[in-house]
Structures are given as C-alpha cells and as structure tokens.
Design a binder for these strands. Structure first.
Lengths: 121, 121
DNA sequence: TAAACGTGTAACCGTATAGTTACGCATTAT
DNA sequence: ATAATGCGTAACTATACGGTTACACGTTTA
C-alpha cells in the first residue's frame, strides 16, 4: 500500500493496533492516564520510540493527551475500537462453525466453477 | 519491531489484519471458498501480490488452502479472530464510558504522582 | 505430446516503519 | 538566574512490506 496517510478510521485503527508495543501501551492505559515518561519506563525501548508510538496512537485517536505542567498525560480513548468490533461482528458466526462441512463446501464451490459433479474428474 | 517472524498467535493475527487488502480478502471469503485466481480478479493489484497476501493469511491460519486439480481454493478460517475478539473484550467497558469524568481522572492521577492537591500549584 | 491454464516463487524496487542518538524547548526546582 | 526535568522532534539506519515482472511447475485440454 503506497499511501499510508489514510484517514479511513477503521484503517487507521487496525494499523495502530498492528504493533505489539502500541497494543501494550493501550493495555497499560486501561489502569488510568499516565505521563509519557512513565509509560516509556514500562518498556524496554527508548523514550523517543515510545513518544513516536504515542503520536501514532494520538493520530488514531486511541489516546488523548492532557498537558499539565511539564507532564503530558495520556488517556485511553477506546471509542475507535468500535470500528474493529463491528468489523469482527461479521465473523462471529464463522468462528463457531466447525470444519465438518468444509469438504462439502469446497466441492460445492468446485462444482459451481466447473459445472461438474464434485469428485469426478 | 525488528523480528516480524513471530508466532504468537494474536500478534500474527493483528499483523495480518493490518493490511486493508487482506481484510478485504477475508471479507470476500465470507461468501465461500474461492480459487486464488478468482480472488485476485477481485482486486486491482497483480495476481502475485494477492498470492503473497494469501500466503500471509495462510501463515496466520486465517485461511485454509485446498488443492483440487490445478485450482487452489481458499477457505476462510475465522478461528484466530477469537484472539482479537478477546483482546477487544478488555476495552468494551471503556468505549461506553463517556468523557465526563476525564478531567477528574487525569487530575486524580496527577495528584497521585505528585502527592499534591489536584489543581494546586 | 504439446499447448494452455492456474498458481506460487524469485528477484528487484521504493516507501514505510521501528529503533537509536543528539538536540531543543517548556516548565519546575534550587 | 540557572539547573534539572519531562517530553517531543530531527536526522539517520536497518529492515519489513507491498507491489511488479519474469519464470517454474504441476494439471488439464486439444
């Protein structure tokens, strides 16, 4: 994908969530708002690295920044996750279906494509 | 993240979902299994590009391949999406909370950090 | 058996990404 | 005032990623 400066909300959200460190930051913020430095302290990478992750999370509106003196508190904003949830919604019915009829499924499809009896050469 | 050859299931799944084309492929497969070429035909990119996306989806176990003659059918396997769903689960309570008490939240945190009365210098 | 088909892989390219160190700039403390 | 603190940004590096074209290989058709 050439153009990553996307604004489609779901896209931005999925992209932000693709990084394990960013997901861990969100997990951390479930405990409550924290200043940037404290967040960084929880990870084995440098403070600037976390700062950049926070920027991405900010741009995806998954966190909200509040300045207070020289601190910048980051607060979780879970609202964009709704988009992920509703995307998942379409799959809920699928992940319960067992794979028993999988073979039949595929063969039916094959038959449709070729106009043949499934199983025949 | 330097090492992308991860096997942690949730990680692989989130990563696979980070690309809009791959998500669209999954959406397409909800209609039923389809041969690779037919999937590729639904997208504006080249067939090899889709072939690589399919490989990633396969490695994330989000699709299952079935060979039949010279066709390779791809079948949706939504099971790994459970991991995403359970990750999201932790946030459900958050995305309903309105932002009314946000200020209080932050100031409380500030007080905790500094040992001061919120609002005082 | 030879041609056509369906599909994956290799090699390559340009951009995005995550990380690092060095630095700048407010804000608070001395 | 000056120093220390908290944090973002710039510049740079290495690698991952998505896309393309060329090709290989098994399967089906003629």
């Amino acid at each position: 994908m050439r153009n990553r400066s996307v604004t489609y909300s779901a896209e931005a959200t999925f992209h932000a969530l693709s990084d394990p460190t960013r997901r861990a930051v969100l997990d951390l913020l479930r405990k409550g708002a924290q200043p940037a430095g404290q967040i960084a302290g929880a990870f084995p990478v440098s403070r600037p690295a976390i700062s950049k992750h926070l920027r991405q999370l900010r741009q995806a509106r998954l966190v909200i920044e509040h300045r207070r003196g020289r601190h910048r508190f980051y607060q979780l904003n879970a609202e964009p996750l709704k988009a992920v949830d509703s995307w998942l919604e379409r799959y809920r019915s699928f992940w319960q279906a067992n794979l028993a009829n999988l073979k039949a499924f595929v063969e039916e499809e094959y038959a449709r494509e070729t106009g043949r009896e499934p199983g025949k050469k």
